[in-house]
């Protein structure tokens, strides 16, 4: 049991969550990824509302567990993770800082506003995260995880992951 004075404030919980990494791309936090939608508390119960990135994303369960553990370590005994589907997650919620971290890690961040509805559209122009060249091509619409596409740079000749706009 923890006295009220020891309880984490909502702000403290948010900054704590900023240190919980995404299990698939550990350079960015779950907050950078934009999947933490709300933090609230009723009495000594903390509720963190999380939205999944992709329906079948295997990381979703791991993320819920890691958030719970991070909060418990700081003394929050009663943690509830609520899954929320709507509004659906969009890559527009990835923070500016998150985008920079992705680029530095070698993953091209999402090009927002890139059309994705329907078929037969040209894939977006994605700058190479290594040499910044726009002279790149899409190898495959799907990469190592559902959220990424596979690209190749025609200047430095390196393959790279592109975090698809979604």
């Amino acid at each position: 049991m923890h006295a009220v004075s020891e309880q984490l404030t909502i702000d403290e919980i948010w900054s704590l969550l900023e240190s919980v990494p995404d299990p698939e791309i550990p350079v960015i936090s779950v907050v950078d990824l934009g999947i933490v939608r709300d933090v609230s508390r009723k009495g000594d119960e903390v509720t963190v509302t999380v939205t999944p990135t992709y329906s079948g994303c295997p990381a979703t369960a791991v993320i819920a567990m890691e958030i719970e553990e991070a909060l418990r370590r700081k003394g929050a005994d009663r943690v509830r993770i609520e899954m929320q589907l709507s509004p659906a997650w969009t890559t527009q919620w990835i923070t500016k800082q998150g985008r920079e971290k992705l680029r530095a890690y070698g993953i091209a961040p999402p090009v927002e506003g890139a059309p994705c509805a329907g078929a037969l559209k040209a894939p977006p122009v994605v700058a190479c995260p290594r040499c910044a060249s726009d002279n790149t091509e899409r190898v495959s619409q799907f990469g190592s995880t559902p959220c990424k596409a596979h690209y190749r740079c025609k200047d430095c000749l390196e393959p790279f992951d592109y975090f698809k706009s979604f």
């Binding site: 999944p52 992709y54 329906s55 589907l85 709507s86 509004p87 659906a88 997650w89 969009t90 994705c116 509805a117 329907g118 078929a119 037969l120 559209k121 619409q141 799907f142 559902p146 698809k164 979604f166």
Partner: peptide, 19 residues
């Protein structure tokens, strides 16, 4: 709500299979 989530994924499915 389920449709809102799923349609974003299926948009990519349709783009790929049509192509």
């Amino acid at each position: 709500e389920i449709a809102e989530k799923a349609v974003k994924e299926v948009t990519y499915h349709l783009e790929r299979s049509s192509d």
